[in-house]
Design a protein around this nucleic acid. Structure first.
Lengths: 187, 187
DNA sequence: GATCTTCTAAACTGATCGGTCTATTAACGA
DNA sequence: TCGTTAATAGACCGATCAGTTTAGAAGATC
């Protein structure tokens, strides 16, 4: 089955990192080929739809990763344990704030309009999964919804501030604060 | 003194809106001329340094606005009143979450490296001004620092989420939550 | 090893990029 | 009214853009 060293999934991961670093508009084909070391031939072989398809598949790939690593555990496993693992997963995925949220970044400019369904789905799913875990953990409905929203907002804001201030500590500090707040609510 | 209908300050405001909507890389000169109705001749007359100068002057202009409308009041006026006004100013400036924070958006991709001093300065000043007001309001040092950081993080995160979810209510709800938290700390 | 498919390399295309230049118009001070 | 300067319009420039094409290398299947 494996026909070469590079599979499409590898190409997706490499391209994702370029979009993360440069944004959708900033990621020109020449930057993508330079940073991934993949030729245009390879890229257009995997993604005949060009840049837009690349971004769409990158986002689908990120979404799928979060579903298996975070959303499904939140929905199916013991709430306290799943939420505890969510903080670890978040910290390691975003590399303690060094890595940006590609989907959050796409949401800010008119790039959003191209991918609004995927962007909305990702954040909606995250909040719903976390809210559900809080509810199963005994947190009342209105508070669970509020806390889940606050957590996702805090993560996104902390990513922005970490890069803006070039501060290595603010992301971890924010995760700790949010974690404590959710644990308090869970009793 | 006034030599024409359009002054440079008008051009800055128009160009700012284009950067806000499209991001730095997404704001091509043709988009800027189309959306501002300013010809290349006018733009390069005001900004001989091109796109980079436009962005730099836009950021300086935003920073100056926040200094007079928010940071200086926080530093000089009665803390509780200044903080109360901060929430109003924030809500109206970001148009209840419909408008993005240009400086926060620039922080996310490699655009940050061009403007890192201005970006860092803006957020640092905001947090410091708010922290100072909380301190003068009687909040203990460590808590004031934490709350100020939390407020700015919450604002940035809420802007991201408001656009991502296309939700009209999340920004106002977040401001109310943060406002309540700071007022509780102020006693 | 022959053959067939997948994948890669890079030359090439027309369109658009950021930026320059020249000609012209508008607003001012005298 | 005249001369000077600020401001505008848009043709134009080389470079780079996203995307296409063609030819060949690398694997897989037999």
């Amino acid at each position: 089955m494996v026909r070469s060293v590079f599979e499409k999934s590898d190409a997706i991961a490499l391209v994702a990192e370029v979009f993360r670093e440069l944004g959708y508009e900033g990621a020109s084909m020449s930057e993508i080929t330079a940073r991934t070391k993949l030729s245009k031939g390879s890229l257009y072989h995997f993604f005949p739809g060009g840049k837009e398809q690349m971004a769409a598949e990158v986002m689908a790939n990120i979404d799928a990763w979060f579903v298996t690593e975070m959303f499904r555990p939140l929905e199916e496993e013991e709430p306290r344990a799943a939420i505890a693992r969510m903080w670890e997963t978040t910290d390691s995925y975003f590399r303690s704030g060094h890595r940006v949220c590609l989907i959050g970044a796409f949401a800010l400019d008119e790039t959003r309009d191209r991918f609004s369904t995927a962007i909305r789905g990702y954040f909606h799913h995250w909040i719903e999964a976390l809210c559900g875990a809080l509810l199963r953990g005994g947190v009342p409905g209105a508070e669970a919804k509020m806390l889940a929203e606050e957590a996702v907002i805090g993560i996104q804001g902390a990513l922005t501030l970490a890069r803006a201030l070039e501060d290595e500590t603010v992301f971890g500090r924010t995760l700790a604060r949010l974690k404590h707040r959710l644990e308090t609510a869970l009793g």
